[in-house]
Design a protein around this nucleic acid. Structure first.
Length: 114
DNA sequence: TGCTTGACATAAT
DNA sequence: CATTATGCCAAGC
């Protein structure tokens, strides 16, 4: 319609949906999330959207990391370690403080069982 | 309405 | 590998 394709709410609502689709034991990068949301240029907005995440939300934000395979330093130190625990609890292994994207990177619409 | 900020990405140095 | 610079664009004030 005139309002064009109104996804759901805003980019954020879209990003949340994509993040919620990340399977357990897998991780995705901000750029990936943005791309899946249909806006590969908004990798930053992805992080910004997660920043607005409601506490107690069922969103697996901890599965979202940066392209370096590391969790993004939020504001205060120690927060990163927390995210790392959540990932390890899901079966994601950390090598030298970073995740092996070559193995844990989430492949949407694929990876039937490589 | 316009400037500032920002959980990023990529390339170059 | 670390740091710097640029791009890209929405949300907040």
């Amino acid at each position: 319609m005139s309002q064009t394709s109104r996804p759901q709410n805003d980019l954020r609502g879209r990003i949340y949906s994509v993040v919620a689709r990340i399977p357990r034991g897998r991780v995705a990068t901000y750029g990936q999330i943005a791309a899946l949301a249909g806006v590969p240029q908004h990798a930053r907005q992805v992080g910004y959207a997660l920043y607005d995440l409601p506490s107690g939300g069922s969103l697996p934000w901890h599965r979202v990391i940066n392209a370096k395979g590391q969790v993004s330093p939020r504001s205060e130190p120690g927060w990163v370690g927390f995210q790392r625990e959540l990932l390890e609890a899901e079966g994601v292994e950390f090598q030298r403080g970073r995740v092996d994207l070559g193995r844990y990177r989430w492949e949407p619409a694929d990876s039937p069982g490589v």
